[in-house]
C-alpha cells in the first residue's frame, strides 16, 4: 500500500463511527434511521436480516431484508451515514455464505437461519 493510500485511509478513519456494533452477515438487526418530519426529528427502526455487507471503508453498506405482509423488502444502509442513529444486534446466525441472496427465493420457515448462541456485548444488543 502506498503512502498516499494510507493517507486516504487515515482521513476516512477519522469520520468512521467507532461505537457501532460489528454487523455481520446473517445478523438479525434493528437499525434506527433518523428522519425529518416537518420540524420534528424522529428515529424510525427497520428490523431484518443482514443478507449482504459491502466493505468499502467509509462507504460500507449493509443490505437488510425483511418480509412485510408476504412481500420481501430490502433496504441498503450506509452504516457510517449520519442518518443511522443506532444499530442493535438481536440475533446472530451461523452462515456459510458472504451473501445470503438465496433467501430471496425462500419464504416462511425456509428463511430461518441456524442461530449462533454467543454472548454479544451488551451495548450492541441494547442501544438507545
Amino acid at each position: 500500500m502506498t503512502k498516499l493510500q494510507q493517507l486516504v485511509q487515515t482521513i476516512q478513519s477519522e469520520i468512521v463511527k467507532t461505537e457501532l456494533p460489528d454487523i455481520r452477515v446473517g445478523d438479525l438487526v434493528r437499525i434506527g434511521v433518523s428522519i425529518q418530519e416537518g420540524n420534528k426529528q424522529r428515529v424510525q427502526p427497520f428490523e431484518g436480516t443482514v443478507i449482504a455487507k459491502h466493505q468499502a471503508g467509509v462507504n460500507t453498506t449493509v443490505t437488510v431484508r425483511k418480509t412485510l405482509q408476504g412481500v420481501g423488502v430490502e433496504r441498503v444502509f450506509p452504516v457510517y451515514a449520519p442518518c443511522i442513529a443506532n444499530v442493535q444486534i438481536l440475533r446472530r446466525a451461523q452462515v456459510s455464505r458472504s451473501k445470503l441472496y438465496y433467501l430471496r427465493n425462500r419464504t416462511g420457515k425456509a428463511t430461518r437461519l441456524k442461530e449462533k448462541f454467543e454472548t454479544l456485548p451488551n451495548v450492541w444488543v441494547n442501544q438507545k
Binding site: 486516504v8 471503508g57 442518518c83
Partner: peptide, 21 residues
C-alpha cells in the same frame, strides 16, 4: 491528487470528495 473519499454534509447528503495535497 491523493485519492478519493466521501463525507456527508450538514443536510446529510453524501458528498464525493477528492483529496489534494
Amino acid at each position: 491528487k491523493v485519492g478519493m473519499t466521501q463525507e456527508w454534509d450538514a443536510w446529510g447528503v453524501r458528498v464525493p470528495l477528492t483529496v489534494l495535497w
